[in-house]
Simulated scan of single mutants.
Amino acid sequence: MTRLILKNSFLLLLIMGRNMQAQDWPNLNKYQNQNSMLPLAVAGQKRIVFMGDSITEFWSTIDPDYFLGKPYINRGISGQTTPQMLLRFRDDVIALHPSAVVILAGINDIAGNTGPSTIEMIRDNIFSMIELAKANHMKVILCSVLPAYDFPWKPNQEPIEKIKALNVILENYSKANNLLYVDYYLAMVDERIGLKAEFSNDGVHPNKTGYQVMAPLAEKAIALTFLK
């Protein structure tokens, strides 16, 4: 009888855990404590939030020196797609009162991480994040999607043309709306139209060398943003 009760209790906890995870689809809980403990930006400080997926999240782990001593806040979440980022944009960006946001998003939508997505769906989610940022008086730095020949966790998706098409949209939107555009794609693409082998261990995520290519491009855009 005791064993049955314990088994049932374990199953209930497992179900509750799964339900809680399902209810927090955008993963608002991930940074909730850090956000609540974040002090207000000091006068004159240009706080910048990096919003994205694993490529953003892992940057702080693989090349932590880039963020050291700077008012940069990493709010990347591995595996996320643009609808998830849009849902948490208020909590993980707006509520932190940054001067600017760096948006790098779209590759997981193309991989189909949360189901099929058209380029137009991805575009609209990214544009909505930008509109929210502007409405809350912050600068926007928009980044190209990095090149990828294929996805190791979900092969045969043929992402090359989709990535190219999305980047054309993002670059044109940046020009039309006077936004800084960071072209990681051009700096990191190889002859196969994938990510250069020296910049990645899996063809999708940058290694330290890859992040060291990205860093000066991001820094240049950040500097130019505050000259406008």
Rank of each mutant, 00 (worst) to 15 (best):
K70Y: 03
P71D: 15
P71G: 09
I73K: 03
R75C: 12
I77S: 02
G79M: 13
G79R: 14
T82P: 06
T82F: 07
Q84W: 05
M85V: 02
M85S: 10
L86F: 05
L87Y: 01
L87N: 03
R88G: 02
R88Q: 05
R88A: 09
R90S: 04
R90V: 04
R90H: 03
R90Y: 02
D91V: 01
D92Q: 03
D92V: 03
D92A: 13
V93L: 13
V93C: 01
V93D: 02
V93K: 07
I94V: 13
L96V: 08
L96T: 05
H97S: 11
H97G: 00
P98R: 14
A100M: 01
A100H: 08
V101F: 09
V102N: 08
I103N: 04
L104Y: 01
L104N: 03
L104D: 02
A105M: 08
G106V: 12
N108W: 08
D109L: 14
D109K: 13
I110Q: 10
A111C: 12
A111R: 15
N113Q: 11
N113G: 11
G115L: 12
P116V: 14
P116I: 15
P116H: 12
P116Q: 15
T118W: 05
T118L: 11
E120M: 09
E120R: 06
M121K: 06
I122Q: 00
D124K: 10
D124M: 05
N125V: 01
N125F: 00
N125G: 07
F127H: 07
F127I: 14
M129E: 08
I130R: 09
E131P: 00
E131C: 05
E131V: 07
L132H: 04
L132F: 07
A133R: 05
K134D: 02
K134T: 04
K134L: 10
A135W: 00
N136G: 03
H137M: 09
H137G: 04
H137K: 15
M138A: 07
K139H: 11
K139P: 02
V140K: 10
V140Y: 03
I141W: 00
I141Q: 06
I141F: 12
L142A: 12
L142E: 02
C143T: 08
C143E: 10
S144L: 08
S144P: 04
A148F: 06
A148M: 14
D150K: 14
D150V: 15
F151I: 15
P152C: 15
P152G: 15
N156R: 15
Q157Y: 02
Q157M: 15
Q157P: 00
E158Q: 11
P159V: 15
I160E: 07
I160N: 10
E161W: 05
E161L: 14
E161M: 09
K162Q: 08
K162H: 01
I163E: 00
